[in-house]
């Protein structure tokens, strides 16, 4: 018992100056030692090294390379130029196809994350708090977990057919295990001394759960939800590509079959952007729900 508490208090190693990136520092050093007397970097150099500027510059170079490659390959069906992709993207946005399919995919994702959370969080609390429950349920979890959600697609196609249920089933399945395992870990890692202290002061079981265990476990649960989102976002494209008549995964495959590759690439861009902003939204939710848990970021 005491060793467990100690382990908890050891905590993750604090980033110290000793652990800052090695060669990175040397490189900085070589940069600042530009000339005798340590000439300060000019205005332009400083502006060029700003984060946003670097990002834009990288994108410009990337798009230029893509364009050159497209010109050199000169097979627009296989590798369309960035301009044609941008035009296709503009057309798709104007026609409302992007918002329609993105909305379908994102709402499927949202619904299935909510269903998975509703199923997995109470079960996780039960398994985290009660050893007997964990001993009995855990074998089933460990038997099913290695079978990836995607491997369920053929069987689910047979049971549900092509439609809305299939992607929801696959996503709930994928998200469930991530949330469950993180909930169990979060409940398990609550500082036992906090619970003991509350119990000593005569706090009831439910109050301990409400005011000690849930707040302490919630940050880990939120990490589980973000991991679940990442896994589900990868799975939704597969599920829609094979077994749904709508959504981003369906759209991208639809235009590939028609060999309209600028539109395929345009939807790829949309998938990247939507995925990025969905993760941003989840981070915001995480900060809002568990403001006391800053620093428990995903590695």
């Amino acid at each position: 018992m005491s060793s467990a508490a100690e382990r908890q208090h050891a905590g993750p190693p604090q980033p110290s100056s000793l652990q800052t990136p090695v060669l990175q520092r040397e490189l900085d050093a070589t940069h600042t030692w530009q000339g005798p007397g340590g000439a300060k970097p000019s205005q332009i150099t400083r502006w060029m090294s700003k984060r946003g500027v670097i990002a834009i510059r990288s994108f410009v170079i990337f798009i230029a390379l893509w364009w050159l490659l497209a010109l050199w390959v000169n097979r627009p069906v296989q590798l369309p130029s960035p301009l044609r992709v941008a035009i296709a993207l503009g057309g798709l946005i104007a026609a409302g196809e992007v918002s329609e399919n993105a909305l379908i995919s994102v709402s499927r994702l949202g619904i299935s994350l909510v269903i998975a959370a509703v199923l997995a969080i109470p079960l996780g609390f039960l398994m985290g708090l009660r050893r007997e429950a964990e001993a009995i349920i855990d074998p089933v979890v460990e038997l099913l977990r290695p079978i990836s959600g995607i491997a369920w697609i053929p069987l689910a196609l047979f049971i549900f057919g092509v439609g809305d249920i299939l992607p929801l089933f696959i996503l709930v399945y994928v998200a469930f295990f991530q949330i469950l395992l993180n909930t169990i870990a979060g409940v398990r890692n609550v500082d036992q001394r906090l619970i003991a202290a509350a119990r000593t002061m005569g706090v009831g079981r439910w109050a301990v759960l409400r005011y000690v265990i849930i707040p302490a476990a919630l940050p880990t649960v939120m990490v589980g939800i973000r991991l679940a989102f990442a896994a589900a976002w990868a799975a939704i494209i597969a599920a829609e590509l094979i077994g749904a008549p709508s959504g981003l995964g369906f759209a991208i495959e639809w235009y590939r079959e028609l060999l309209m590759s600028p539109k395929v690439f345009a939807f790829l861009v949309v998938i990247g952007i939507v995925g990025y902003f969905a993760d941003l939204a989840l981070r915001a939710l995480q900060r809002w729900l568990t403001p006391w848990a800053q620093g428990t970021e995903l590695a």
């Binding site: 990175q24 990868a234 590509l241």
Partner: peptide, 28 residues
């Protein structure tokens, strides 16, 4: 990992490809 300028320049590209699922790349 060992050169900061390489990391700063490549990070934006890497991070924008990361949310694109492997299955989305399959059609291409």
């Amino acid at each position: 990992g060992s050169s900061r300028s390489v990391k700063d320049n490549l990070d934006p590209i890497i991070e924008s490809f990361r949310p694109i699922a492997p299955m989305a790349v399959l059609p291409i």
